[in-house]
């Protein structure tokens, strides 16, 4: 017992202050929200050629980058001789609308994630069931980490529960493998209405690197309606938490 208390003292209080205090520091080489500059692009399309997921389109000398498909590998940034694409430090990527995930020159606004209806229903308490549908266990791990004392998801009234019957919605990871389609639908149906769906990670948002595979779907929207899209491969835990909080406007 003494030893347990001693260790407790040593471990200290480690829950982060954010969102009331400073946000967690992103590491060097972090690839957050991309910023596209319209002035220096010469329309060569080198960025689109190297993109492994086809997230970039260049039309009339204007780049648009779909952060929903993007796996943030940074190849486009390296390929661009004009420095037109820069991945920044901003981890606030989540959006309520799929189309708002497309970044274009001059558009460096954080996409809107707020829903008044969801705020009214679940603003004070949101219970989620998690379904991994072809996820690689990275999105799952960085969702799981929100439950640790460092992030302490419970302080926002958000909690992961062990049954869809206890849940207000589901948080889905993975592109939705065909082999998980039925289980995902059944889980969704088992959640009492009104309910919400959150797609976490490039795979869940759009299929990501698995977009176009015959063994998978192109993300959750192909199967059930989605209320919040959280890009990234995998999204940083701060990106997921920020998305949840902006959805509920906490």
């Amino acid at each position: 017992m003494l030893k347990v208390s001693k260790v407790r003292l040593q471990q200290g209080y480690r829950t982060m202050k954010w969102p009331d205090g400073p946000a967690p520091e992103m590491p060097p080489h972090f690839t957050g929200r991309p910023v596209i500059s319209g002035d220096c692009c010469n329309g060569c399309g080198d960025c689109a050629k190297v993109c492994p997921t086809g997230a970039i389109a260049v039309a009339d000398g204007k780049i648009s980058l779909d952060t929903g498909l993007c796996i943030f590998c940074g190849k486009c940034e390296k390929a661009c001789s004009k420095d037109a694409i820069k991945f920044g430090n901003d981890f606030r990527l989540a959006s309520a609308k799929r189309e708002d995930l497309v970044v274009q020159p001059g558009n460096d606004m954080t996409p809107n994630a707020y829903s008044e209806a969801i705020h009214k229903l679940f603003g004070r308490s949101l219970k989620l069931r998690q379904v991994s549908a072809g996820g690689c266990n990275a999105c799952e791990a960085d969702t799981n980490v929100l439950g640790t004392l460092a992030w302490d998801l419970g302080r926002f009234g958000i909690q992961f529960v062990a049954s869809p019957r206890h849940a207000d919605g589901i948080l889905v990871t993975g592109p939705v493998s065909k082999n998980m389609e039925l289980a995902l639908k059944k889980t969704y149906e088992a959640v009492p209405a009104p309910k919400i769906v959150i797609a976490v990670g490039a795979c869940a948002v759009s299929g990501g690197i698995y977009c176009g595979q015959k063994e998978t779907h192109k993300g959750v929207p192909e199967i059930i309606p989605v209320d919040l899209f959280v890009p990234g491969c995998p999204p940083h835990p701060a990106t997921i938490l920020d998305g949840l909080l902006r959805l509920l406007r906490k």
Partner: peptide, 27 residues
């Protein structure tokens, strides 16, 4: 349940996607 066709997609590689399939094969 998690089958995503990774091995099948590596055939005819290596290409620009191969390493990303490998990186997400078990994240």
């Amino acid at each position: 349940y998690q089958h995503r066709g990774v091995e099948r997609s590596l055939v005819n590689g290596p290409n620009s996607k191969s390493l990303h399939f490998i990186e997400t094969l078990a994240g």
